[in-house]
Amino acid sequence: MPDKLSKYRSKRDAERTPEPVPDSLSSSPDGNAFVIQEHHARSLHWDLRLERDGVLVSWAVPKGLPADPGTNHLAVRTEDHPMEYLTFHGEIPQGEYGGGTMTVWDTGTYETEKWSDREVKFVLHGERADGRFVLFRTRGKNWMIHRMGAAARDPFPDVDPMLPTRRAKPPRDPAAYAFEFAWGGRRLLVPIEGGRTTAAREHPWLRALAESFGSRTAVLDGELTTLGGAEILVFYDLLYDDGHSLLAEPYTTRRAALEALGVTGGHWQTAPAWPGDFDPVRQAAREQGLPGVLAKRLDSPYEPGTSTSWLLLPS
């Protein structure tokens, strides 16, 4: 009988990696376990592993499981892994095969609907991964994974930025607004999916930001500006978060969700905001040489184009 783990063992040295390197096969109680691991290796990807005949049959999925039936994702067949990998997480040393950080993204059980050399249909029952999928082989090690059934998330918003209306005087009811600095930079919407963003084509340093999101989907709204002689991307709104559109939500909800992300780094930060407090913000904007102050209604949804819910006030 062939050794199903021979290729796995040939790529690993048990004295140099914390990964399990067992001598024999094992199985879960019901023989239908799965695990998805988030793997920050040379490039971020997710490893889908389905138990089959004593091993975990594995695919590397660069963008993670598709949430929309209209979009298929690449899945690259890799070597079978031992059952002990169901719970493996940790740091694989750099220089070793698959070097990088690995965490368990989800685990659970699955049902097999079809299994052949070219097609695998299955239903996942996990906390984060749930639903029917099909893997189908295209060429060599390359497969595609397709979600069957309804979409698991709202569609990505395809909108123009919300723009302020110029006003000479602050609103009469400042308690109904939050006040932010007007940065005077260039507007940039940043969509993030599968640890990647199309905005990195123009700004390669955004790849690190996108990768830090892991499997979390988001669309952030911000501005490219120069602070202290360095280019900084300042974020001040969140239009989409983890599969849910926030366009119809009030500013207060979107702002709380943005702050919960804790977006900060060497090239990006979350812009400060001060509800109901115009005069100190205007004074600070003057002292920093900023062009003005933005007043944003606390109850306003995100409205593409010019809106009277956002006001641009002189500093």
Rank of each mutant, 00 (worst) to 15 (best):
H73D: 07
I36A: 12
T109N: 14
L86Q: 09
G64M: 11
G108L: 03
P174A: 11
D237A: 00
R216C: 10
W143V: 07
S300E: 00
Y302R: 00
D154W: 00
R52T: 12
H203L: 06
G126C: 07
H146D: 06
P204V: 03
G195Y: 02
F133V: 05
D53A: 15
S315Q: 12
P20V: 09
T71W: 12
Y8M: 11
A257Y: 02
F278D: 02
G214P: 05
D277T: 12
L246M: 00
D160Q: 13
R216P: 05
P62H: 09
W310N: 01
F179W: 09
P62R: 08
P191I: 08
P82G: 03
G289T: 10
G195C: 07
T17M: 04
T253N: 00
A176H: 11
P93Y: 07
E287N: 11
F278M: 04
D299I: 00
P69L: 09
D237R: 00
L227P: 00
A257W: 01
A260M: 13
L294Q: 03
D279N: 10
E51A: 13
A218D: 02
A152I: 03
G276E: 06
G99P: 01
R172D: 15
K121R: 14
A182H: 11
S6I: 14
H45C: 12
F235V: 06
S10M: 13
L86A: 09
W183H: 10
T308I: 13
D154S: 08
A33V: 10
P170N: 13
G292N: 04
K11S: 10
E303N: 03
Y110L: 04
L74T: 15
L290P: 03
G243D: 02
M1E: 15
R137G: 12
G228Y: 05
G229D: 01
R201A: 10
A295H: 11
A285K: 04
W183F: 08
I92Y: 03
L86N: 08
E96V: 02
R118V: 09
P280H: 13
K141Q: 15
S212E: 04
P20I: 10
L50Q: 11
A230F: 05
P191R: 05
V55F: 09
A257S: 12
T138N: 13
T107P: 01
G265L: 06
T306R: 14
L233G: 00
L188A: 07
H244W: 01
D299H: 00
E96K: 05
G140H: 14
L25G: 09
L188W: 03
I36S: 11
A14E: 14
V76R: 14
L227E: 13
R12L: 14
V159W: 00
P204I: 06
P66T: 08
T270Y: 07
Q288N: 11
R187S: 09
P291M: 09
A41D: 11
E111G: 01
